[in-house]
């Protein structure tokens, strides 16, 4: 378990937005929490995998991609904000991501 501080929250939020801004060649100021990844950014599911792989290494998280995939099945991350929440859950819980969504 890693305690999620406001600093980490801010860092992850910025990191996710920077990642999508760079990959999708979109001004970072145009990416908001409510921005839809596939519809608004022309993103795709493989981007999630690449992002999560970076996160795993950056925060030294012990988690299988499959575990994250199962969580995403139960709680799809369609927006930047939802994906950021998922990333924070992964950092906080690793392999033990809770089934119940965090509000």
């Amino acid at each position: 378990m890693t305690a999620i501080t406001n600093e980490i929250k801010q860092e992850v939020s910025s990191f996710v937005k920077e990642y999508f801004a760079d990959e999708c060649e979109i001004d970072i100021d145009d990416i908001k929490d409510e921005t839809k990844i596939i519809e608004d950014l022309d993103g795709d599911s493989l981007m999630f995998l690449s992002l999560l792989e970076i996160i795993r290494k950056k925060y030294d998280v012990q988690v299988e991609i499959k575990t994250i995939g199962k969580s995403l099945m139960k709680r799809p991350a369609e927006t930047i904000g939802e994906l950021t929440d998922m990333v924070l859950l992964v950092i906080e819980h690793g392999e033990n991501i809770p089934d119940v969504a965090v509000a």
């Binding site: 990959e23 999708c24 022309d42 795709d44 981007m47």
Partner: peptide, 8 residues
């Protein structure tokens, strides 16, 4: 070609 697409 958009970066995301061309990388693939």
């Amino acid at each position: 070609i958009k970066k995301r697409i061309r990388k693939q």
